[in-house]
Amino acid sequence: MVAIADKAAKPGSRLQFILDSPAVLGTIFVSPAVLYVLVLVGAPFLLAMYYSVSAYTIYSQSYRFVGLRNFIDVVQDPVFRQTLLNTFIFTFGSQIVGLILGKFGALLLLRPFPGRKVVRALIMLPWAVPVALATVAWEWMFDSLYSVINWTLIALGIITRSDAPNWLGNPHLAMLCVIMVNAWRFFPFAIVIFLAGITSVPQDVIDAATVDGAGFWRRNYQIIVPMIAPIVVVGLIFGIVFTFTDLSIVYLLTNGGPVGATSVLGFEGFQVGIVSGDVAHGAAISLFMLPVLFVLVLVMLRSIRRQEI
């Protein structure tokens, strides 16, 4: 008793008491992350917001407020409207393809087979390989002269050299190519999401459904998919946000061509704001993503909550 009383009377105990408080300690531990987000995400974001309503260019660094003029200029440009449409097609196209591939990939990887661990590791490669490296490899595969895809199709006698598709030269095929490359990058992530979801479904639920006569499709689409929907939606939010804001694949594969058919908001914002130095209009183009993503994420999160209830 005495010893305890002596200890309690030691100087510095007040600091120790504060550090013993989970609330205080939690705040201390979380604060670097909060600071990181504020400094490296929050501040640039607010600056971009201000740039978009200013007259700021690299040539003349004027912070003069111009209201919504930049946004009006941007919307009136038919190239921008085409770019906005491209962005939606690119984002949702690649997410749909990625999800389908992810679902089937997960189902295949759930089944035991020799070398499954190696296959599981290898299938993560598209996600792990640096985007620049992967895209350059794809560029060669779509090359107008040396396309390995065309070469294979010609060798198999399916097409002739004169019929060979110009993957990156035809506007529709070029869009398909950027979608496929992005889906290829995204599908390992989708596999992980689906695997995590499917393995969390209790086996007795599946067994019960099987006993009740549910076949493969019914088990999958009326039991498993609804049960794992919340986790899939979270993965989808990640995919949509990252794709909507991405410019790397388009920049490396098509440079927005042919005739702007694959130009997306991130690429257009970069060309105008950074390459040409019109930071204000570049910021306005980039910030067009914000309300779209905000609404989309809100709707998706609400749908998850509804499903959980």
Binding site: F142, D143, S144, L145, Y146, N166, W167, L168, G169, N170, A174, T254, N255, G257, P258
Partner: peptide, 20 residues
């Protein structure tokens, strides 16, 4: 040919260097 629609700066070099 329609090849030229997808070219980057190295493509025409490759085109003539390939003999085509």
């Amino acid at each position: 040919t329609s090849d030229v629609l997808s070219w980057d700066d190295s493509s025409n070099n490759k085109y003539i260097d390939s003999g085509v």
